[in-house]
Amino acid sequence: MVTAELRKLLGLPTAWVGLVLGLIAAPLLVFVNAPALRRMADSGQLPDPADVGYENLGIGLLGALILGVVVVSSEYTSTGDDSPGAHQMTSTLLAMPGRKRLLAAKGSALALVVGVQGAVTAVTTIVLTRSLMPFAPSFDPVRVAAAVLYWILLALLAYAITFIFRNGIVTLTLFIVNSSVVSVSYLLTKLTPLAAYLPDIVGAHMFLRSHPADETIPPVTAGVVMTLWVGALLAVAAFLFRRRPA
């Protein structure tokens, strides 16, 4: 069942957009940022190099988010103008009527693809950063593994939210606006330190050492909190998926 969902995911053109974007964005950003960072380091103006390289991994998360969305949204896309109410999920459930198993299989396929994507991207980015900028932190397998886990958890978060709304546009808009236009989560941290435990903020504490929010969360604690968020939203998605019509 996981193999079938893996083939289905990799057969989606939009999924390849997310896959390629996640693989190339962070390494390309290393080349873009390297000259300015080297000048800052030479002039003694680089404040803290602890996250140099690792912070570039954030841009690749968009690829993981796209994968988390399209694995679900593709099932709810209309199959044609002749039957605007029909979609792929109807056929999928006829072939695999066990909804819990289907949810688990799709999530497992997504986690596998994003895990490989994240591992390749993270290793490439950190090694490349270190070769271009000797002042960057050395390769740390634990931090790299934490970054890859964050990619997987965020993809599963997008997966769960897309299942809840059954609309990929809503999920992508929510994440993109919150991360690039105005971070509602970050603004909330100015009102209460508890906002630092929202999923889009707490997850970064798993592998980054400096943060715009005042709250500092240990990496293990951040990972546990992020996992709880994902687990809770997956539970909601499973509850709604079992009770809604196809």
Rank of each mutant, 00 (worst) to 15 (best):
A146I: 06
P245L: 05
M96K: 10
G231C: 08
G60H: 00
A237S: 07
S131C: 01
A26L: 07
P141F: 08
I59D: 10
T171L: 08
P212F: 08
S210A: 01
E75Y: 03
D200P: 00
P134D: 01
G203F: 12
A50D: 13
L102W: 05
T189H: 14
W151G: 04
A196E: 07
T189R: 11
E215Y: 06
L188Y: 00
L57E: 10
G168N: 06
S73V: 02
G223Q: 07
A147F: 09
L23G: 11
M133Q: 14
L149R: 06
L61F: 14
L6I: 00
E215S: 12
F31L: 15
V72L: 04
D51A: 05
S138L: 03
L153S: 07
G118V: 06
V32L: 12
V224P: 06
M226Y: 13
A41F: 04
F139G: 09
A232W: 08
D51R: 09
D214L: 13
V148R: 13
L10G: 05
A25Q: 04
L6E: 00
V70S: 14
L198G: 03
A232T: 15
F165H: 06
G118P: 10
A25T: 15
G63W: 02
T227G: 10
L37A: 07
M133H: 08
P97Y: 08
V20G: 00
A50F: 09
T162H: 05
A158M: 09
Y150A: 14
S83Q: 12
V114G: 10
M226V: 05
H87S: 08
A235P: 02
V32T: 08
P97H: 13
K100L: 14
T125L: 02
P97L: 10
A104Y: 04
V181Q: 03
G223N: 10
A204G: 13
W151L: 06
